[in-house]
Nucleic acid binder design. Structure first.
Lengths: 102, 102
DNA sequence: TCAAGAGTTCCATTTTACTGAACAATGGGA
DNA sequence: TCCCATTGTTCAGTAAAATGGAACTCTTGA
C-alpha cells in the first residue's frame, strides 16, 4: 500500500467518484452500479480497469457474491497507515465540486 | 487549482520529493538543485516538465532571478482551499519511506 | 560581443490509458 | 442437465501521456 498508488488512483475524477460513493456507503456496491457517472457512460472494460486500480492501491476490497462483485472501502486500514489522507482528498474533491456548481 | 491536478502531480515520487524539499525549505530552491535525487540522475528536460506540472497544479510558484528560477511552495494557498491535503500527502510519503528503510 | 549557465521546446521513442470484442464465470429456470 | 442472461475480466488495437536527447532561448558576466 504505497502513497503514490493511492494518489494515482484518486487522481482520476471517475475513480475518485467511485471511491467516494463506496467510502460513503453503509453497504457494499457492485461494479455495474457505476456504469454511468453523472452524464457520462463508462464502458464496462474501463470500469473493470478502474476497479482494478482501486483494488491494487489498497483502497477497496472486492468479493464475489454470485454473479456480481461487492466492493467495500478499506478506509480504516488506509487511515491506520496514512492518517487523514483519505479524508483530506475526499474533502478536497467535495469542495471543488461545490465551487463548480456555484 | 483542481484536486485531480494536485494528486496527479504528487502521485509521481520524483515530483513528490521535489515538492517535499521545496515545501520544507525556508528559502527558495532553483530547478537545477534537483538534477539528481538520491541515486537517480534526472535529465533537465524531464526536470523542466516536472516543474511545469507542479506549477500548473498550483503547488509551487517559479520566479526568474537572473539566469535561474527560484521555486517556492504555495502551501498556504493550497491549505486555504483544501485544508489538510498537503500535510496528509507529505506525511504519507514520509511514513512510507520510513517503513521502507526499516 | 562572446561564452557559459539555467530552463524550455521539439520530437522520436516508450509507456500507459482507453475501449470494443471476445471470453469466463456464476446462478436461475425450463 | 442444459441453456442463457448477467456480471465482470482479458485481449488487442488505438489514442494519449511521459520520457529524454538535442537544439534552442534567455540572461549575466567577462
Amino acid at each position: 500500500m504505497r502513497p503514490e498508488a493511492i494518489l494515482h488512483a484518486l487522481a482520476d475524477p471517475i475513480r475518485a467518484a467511485i471511491f467516494t460513493d463506496i467510502a460513503g456507503a453503509t453497504c457494499s456496491r457492485i461494479c455495474s452500479a457505476f456504469s454511468s457517472i453523472g452524464e457520462r457512460a463508462i464502458p464496462k472494460s474501463s470500469l473493470s480497469q478502474h476497479f482494478k486500480t482501486l483494488r491494487e492501491a489498497g483502497l477497496i476490497r472486492s468479493e464475489r457474491h454470485g454473479v456480481e462483485m461487492r466492493n467495500t472501502s478499506r478506509c480504516d486500514e488506509v487511515e491506520k497507515r496514512f492518517p487523514g489522507l483519505i479524508a483530506a482528498i475526499l474533502t478536497a474533491y467535495a469542495r471543488s465540486e461545490q465551487r463548480c456548481q456555484a
